[in-house]
């Protein structure tokens, strides 16, 4: 879905769960119980923000993350790729890249703020638990790298993915004739449409399966918690009986 105003009506027609998932893919923190109005407002705000952000700066971030992407990738696709990353070390990222990243993290850069201050504010915005997790992984990573890695890792130049080559009408007519090339183009358009629809259906089915999986996981956890509670109650009851038995022995003695 491109981030333009024309998508707004279809956005409001999306079911809440898909809207939330879409918002989360753009890096917005939305919980499952977010009201639809609020989710819609946040998603639209994010789309407006994406319109304001510099695409080249977003590309800077993606290149810095070394995620393979086409040079022609849209802002929304770039934002989705960036949102999937868990970052806290911004070394090597350009200033404009850091600025758009901070905007995506809802950390608005202040006038005259130094880069290091902005970086530390961005790190703090992720919360202490995320920082702790990152620190833990950093320690584990350095230990494992020391054991496994053999020498300094070198990073080669970044390369974009190849673009889809546009076909030439002249070449198509040369190869297939006029009617053949027209038929081929119509068939290609129809195939693209069908593929797009099939992809959309597949995405929806995947999302539903994920939801079912999540609900089954919740049911499993509830069931385990329930069984553990029963076990605790049984143990408490057994302890009471043993205490009673001890008291009986004591009185009898």
């Amino acid at each position: 879905m491109p981030p333009d105003a024309s998508t707004s009506p279809s956005l409001s027609e999306l079911p809440l769960d898909e809207l939330i998932r879409y918002g989360q893919s753009l890096g917005i923190s939305l919980s499952e119980d977010t009201p639809k109005g609020e989710a819609l407002r946040k998603v639209r705000a994010r789309q407006e923000l994406l319109l304001d952000l510099d695409r080249d700066a977003l590309l800077d971030v993606v290149m810095w993350l070394r995620i393979p992407v086409r040079r022609s990738a849209g802002k929304e696709q770039l934002a989705e790729l960036i949102a999937q990353q868990n970052l806290s070390d911004f070394r090597g990222l350009s200033d404009r890249g850091l600025e758009v990243l901070s905007n995506l993290w809802n950390v608005v850069p202040r006038a005259g703020e130094s880069r290091s201050d902005l970086e530390s504010r961005m790190r703090r915005s992720r919360g202490p638990i995320a920082q702790w997790r990152r620190l833990r992984r950093k320690v584990v990573g350095s230990v494992v790298a020391r054991i496994v890695a053999s020498g300094e890792e070198t990073r080669g130049d970044y390369h974009f993915l190849p673009e889809d080559a546009p076909s030439s009408i002249r070449r198509d007519i040369e190869e297939d004739g006029l009617m053949g090339s027209v038929a081929k183009r119509i068939r290609g358009v129809a195939d693209d449409y069908v593929h797009e629809k099939l992809d959309e259906i597949e995405r929806r089915i995947d999302a539903k399966l994920d939801e079912i999986d999540q609900r089954l996981g919740e049911w499993r956890d509830r069931e385990v918690a329930h069984r553990l509670n029963i076990l605790k109650l049984t143990l408490v009851f057994s302890i009471l009986v043993v205490l009673l038995s001890l008291l009986y022995d004591y009185l009898r003695a």
């Binding site: 553990l228 076990l231 605790k232 143990l235 408490v236 057994s238 302890i239 043993v242 205490l243 001890l246």
Partner: peptide, 11 residues
């Protein structure tokens, strides 16, 4: 549960 088991075993 662990604490309760230890308690039960001790008793």
């Amino acid at each position: 549960i662990g604490v309760l088991v230890i308690l039960l075993g001790t008793l």
